[in-house]
């Protein structure tokens, strides 16, 4: 969906075909994405990063004339509180830790107010404490949004997942709750066979 061309098949979202659509069109349909490594603006402040992600200033002229309204400030503060970086609002992102940068990016996704959120290994490179906090952020997020997380870390998956889909070699292997998946014989076989598995949790 923008990063690499789709080789075959079609992707639909809410009745719109989004196969090979440009990233900004996909984003505007309400899909928020975050990739494995922190992908944030180091030269900008946390506040500015979140501001960029807010809905409503995507047009050129809107961006020139838009004002920083009370509502926007409240929204940004609300996002910052969720990711626990309210006190770092005016710090340049470059001075944050790796884990905090990941949170900034999760904050950006929240600020986008998407209807579905796709997170690719949001805890990559985090300490276990940070991972746990991230799990709590995602759980809160899932109250308002549909969240799809791609993750290998089973502890983390247990923390956040309501429904798990196990993928193997691009095929769906199993689906269900944490307990169901853990007891699935195919999953155990592949898992113990030490093959790479991707687990999508929703």
């Amino acid at each position: 969906m923008g990063k690499s061309p789709v080789a075959s098949g079609h992707v639909y979202y809410q009745g719109h075909e989004i196969t090979n659509r440009s990233p900004h069109e996909v984003a505007r349909l309400g899909i928020g994405r975050k990739f494995q490594n922190p992908n944030v603006y180091n030269e900008l402040t946390v506040f500015e990063n979140i501001l960029l992600a807010l809905k409503g200033t995507h047009g050129i002229f809107a961006s020139i004339t838009s004002k920083l309204t009370r509502a926007k400030k409240d929204k940004i503060a609300w996002v910052l509180e969720r990711i626990g970086l309210l006190d770092k609002a005016f710090v340049k992102v470059s001075s944050l830790s790796h884990g905090q940068k990941q949170w900034v990016e999760i904050g950006m996704v929240i600020a986008q107010d998407p209807s579905i959120v796709l997170l690719d290994e949001p805890t990559a490179g985090m300490t276990s404490d940070e991972t746990h906090l991230t799990g709590e952020i995602i759980k809160t997020m899932s109250q308002d949004h549909s969240v799809v997380v791609i993750e290998h870390d089973m502890d983390f998956v247990k923390q956040i997942a309501q429904r798990i889909i196990v993928l193997h070699q691009g095929e769906k292997l199993a689906e269900g709750s944490v307990a169901e998946v853990q007891n699935n014989s195919k999953v155990v076989e592949v898992y113990l066979g030490r093959e790479k598995i991707d687990i999508a949790a929703a």
């Binding site: 923008g2 505007r28 994405r33 603006y41 030269e43 992600a53 809905k55």
Partner: peptide, 13 residues
């Protein structure tokens, strides 16, 4: 700084 990221936020770079 990073034009790909901002396109994922819905901006037509």
């Amino acid at each position: 700084e990073n034009e790909r990221r901002i396109s994922y936020l819905g901006y037509d770079v």
